[in-house]
C-alpha cells in the first residue's frame, strides 16, 4: 500500500509550533515530569529532536517502520527508552512519550483543508500504525534494558554474598549465608578456588551457620565445592552445622562425607593442628617443642 506519508511530513514540519507544545502538554498531563526524574527542558528538547527525526522518516520512509529512513528515529527512541529504564521510569510512562504524539498529529490532519476526508482518514490510519509500532519498539527496548539491569544485579549480589576470608597462613574460611542454589554454588566455588590459588591455602573451612536448611541438593552443592577444592590440593572442613540441621539431615538421609566440626573455632583448631601448629588447649601437645613432632604424626 503506497500511502504518501510525505504529506504528513510536510504538515508535521509546517505545524511544529502547534504540535510540539500540545504534545509536551499531554506528556506533562500524563505525569512525565511528576517524578522529577527529568526536567521540563530535557523533555522539550527530547520531544523536539524526536519530532524532527520522525518528520525525516515520514518524508522518505513511507509507512514502514522497517524502512531505513526511520533508523535515526528508532535509535533515538532506543536511547531515550534505555535511559528511562535505568532512571526507574515505569513502562507506561516510557511508552507515553510516543503514544501521546498521536493526538497532536491527528488534530493537525483534521484541521487541514487541502486533504479530502478519505485522504485524511487514510493518513490518520497509517500514522496510527506507525506510532503504535514505534511505541512497541520503545517498550521492547525498555524491557531489554531492565533485563540487563537485573542480570547485572544478580551477578553483583552473588559476588557480594560470598566472601572468602583468610584466618591464618594457609587457612581460609568461607562463611556461607543463605540458601545454596547451583548458580550461587558456582560463584562460591570460583571465589574459594581463586583465593586458594592466591593465598596458596592448604585448608578451607566452610562455615554453614548461616545456611537455613541443608537438603539433599544443598548437600550435593557442598560436596561439589569440597571435591573441587581437593582437586586443587586443598582440604575442606565443614563447620557450623546447627543441631536442627543435623537432625534434618539424618532424617532426610543426607550424608556429608567430609570432616565436620560443630563450630568455626573447632574447625580452626583442627586446621591449625593439621598445618603443624599447636593450640595450647590441646592436651596432647606440650607447647613449642612438641609442635614439629605432632605435625609429623598427624601428617601420616
Amino acid at each position: 500500500m503506497a500511502v504518501n506519508t510525505g504529506n504528513v511530513a510536510e504538515l508535521v514540519g509546517s505545524n511544529e509550533q502547534t504540535i510540539l507544545p500540545e504534545w509536551i502538554e499531554l506528556q506533562k498531563k500524563a505525569g512525565s515530569l511528576q517524578t522529577g526524574r527529568i526536567t521540563e527542558n530535557e523533555l522539550a528538547s527530547q520531544s523536539r529532536e524526536f519530532l524532527h527525526l520522525l518528520r525525516d522518516g515520514l518524508s522518505r520512509g513511507g509507512s514502514e517502520v522497517s524502512n531505513s529512513a526511520y533508523g535515526p528515529a528508532k535509535q533515538m527512541l532506543a536511547d531515550v527508552s534505555r535511559s528511562r529504564a535505568l532512571q526507574g521510569f515505569s513502562p507506561s510512562e516510557t511508552a507515553t512519550f510516543v503514544f501521546s504524539l498521536k493526538q497532536p498529529i491527528f488534530n493537525v490532519l483534521n484541521r487541514n483543508t487541502t486533504l479530502s476526508p478519505a485522504q485524511a482518514a487514510e493518513l490518520t490510519w497509517s500514522v496510527t500504525l506507525l506510532l503504535d509500532e514505534l511505541g512497541l519498539y520503545t517498550l521492547e527496548v525498555f524491557q531489554k534494558s531492565r533485563e540487563e539491569v537485573i542480570v547485572r544485579q544478580q551477578r553483583e549480589i552473588a559476588e557480594l554474598s560470598t566472601p572468602v576470608v583468610k584466618l591464618w597462613d594457609g587457612i581460609l574460611a568461607l562463611p556461607l549465608i543463605g540458601t545454596l542454589d547451583s548458580q550461587r554454588t558456582q560463584v562460591v566455588m570460583e571465589n574459594l578456588l581463586q583465593t586458594v590459588v592466591e593465598t596458596e591455602a592448604e585448608i578451607a573451612i566452610i562455615d554453614i551457620t548461616g545456611v537455613p536448611t541443608v537438603d539433599t541438593l544443598t548437600a550435593q552443592h557442598l560436596l561439589k565445592t569440597v571435591a573441587a577444592a581437593r582437586l586443587m590440593g586443598a582440604d575442606c572442613i565443614i563447620s557450623g552445622i546447627r543441631p536442627q540441621i543435623a537432625q534434618t539431615m539424618v532424617h532426610l538421609g543426607v550424608e556429608l562425607n567430609v570432616i565436620s566440626k560443630a563450630t568455626l573455632a573447632d574447625a580452626l583448631a583442627l586446621a591449625l593442628e593439621r598445618t603443624g601448629r599447636a593450640v595450647t588447649r590441646l592436651k596432647k601437645a606440650t607447647p613449642a617443642s612438641g609442635q614439629n613432632k605432632m605435625s609429623a604424626e598427624k601428617g601420616q
Partner: peptide
C-alpha cells in the same frame, strides 16, 4: 589444576578420588 577446570571436572562427575593433588609443583 586451574580453578575453572576443577569446578568443571566436579560438575562432569569426576572427582579423581584415586589421585593425590597439590596446588603446585613445589607442594607436590
Amino acid at each position: 589444576m586451574r580453578p575453572a577446570v576443577a569446578i568443571t571436572l566436579v560438575e562432569l562427575g569426576l572427582s579423581l578420588a584415586g589421585v593425590k593433588t597439590a596446588l603446585n609443583v613445589e607442594r607436590g
